[in-house]
Amino acid sequence: MGPLVVNGIISENTNLLLAFIIGIGFGFVLESSGFSSSRKLAGVFYGYDMVVLKVFFTAAITAMLGMLFLSLFGWLDLDLVYVNPTYLSSAIIGGVVMGAGFIIGGFCPGTSFAGASIGKIDAMVFIGGLFIGVIIFSEGYPLWDNLYMAAFKGSPKLSESLGLSDGLAALGIILAAIGMFYVAEWAEKKFPREEY
């Protein structure tokens, strides 16, 4: 039957509609898991609330399993799926900057909009900061052009780097994620916090 989208079994427009529905589902899960609270996000850092870790890792392994099974049935060509290219140094520096912003602001870009949409003022301030950051980055782009483009690694997959098949790597990630979930729940009991 071939890739569903490429062969027109799912049309371009239906594809967009599905993306819209999946996006709303994702937003719904974010909001209903309490992600619009900045304390919830900061909780990952302090160890009293690991919901963020659990939700995002669940999303990752669900998507991973879904894509592998779709590929197995021949409904999806994994080679056609866009993989963000890796620029190692900017990934590390950007990760540190974003992580710091996460702890200080208590939001990540997506959840700040979720928070702002239900009227949280700290989320709106966070969005303001986000735009200041965007302006500084884009206006000063020539300054960090070299750094931004340094250590280009292409679009490597974890399975390729480890020399495993996609399925084996997926199993490893699932086991690691479930291990992490149990460690996270242990941490929640270890560093409890009342009333947040």
Binding site: P3, V6, L65, L68, D79, G167, L171, I174
Partner: peptide, 19 residues
């Protein structure tokens, strides 16, 4: 989830790329 992971690890990878 681990069960699904085991299945996907055990089956051969689909490497056919029709288009």
């Amino acid at each position: 989830i681990v069960g699904l992971g085991l299945i996907i690890a055990a089956v051969p990878q689909n490497t056919t790329h029709p288009y």
